[in-house]
């Protein structure tokens, strides 16, 4: 039986668990998937890993590193 726990509760609990452990398994999964798919059609194994990766992506917040904006060079103001 699937049990009475709501999906939203499951997601919340898993997010809290990820936040506590501070480990992101998605990066290593992505590497494995790329390796499996390299020059080969998708295998059963890569499909199941993709399923796992996409499931984890629902609960792991992947922080995209922000690039620092290049400061524009000081421009002489045009005389109006």
């Amino acid at each position: 039986m699937i049990g009475a726990k709501k999906l939203s509760t499951i997601r919340k609990e898993l997010r809290a668990a990820f936040a506590r452990e501070k480990k992101n398994p998605i990066a290593s999964l992505d590497r494995k998937i790329r390796e499996l798919c390299k020059n080969k059609p998708a295998t059963k194994e890569s499909r199941s890993l993709l399923l796992l990766r996409d499931a984890l992506a629902q609960v792991v917040e992947v922080k995209v590193p922000r690039r620092r904006r290049r400061q524009p060079a000081n421009r002489a103001k045009k005389a109006l």
Binding site: K5, I10, L51, L52, A55, Q58, V59
Partner: peptide, 11 residues
């Protein structure tokens, strides 16, 4: 559906 069943297993 596959993804949420995996989340259930993890949970």
């Amino acid at each position: 559906d596959g993804q949420i069943l995996i989340l259930k297993a993890l949970s």
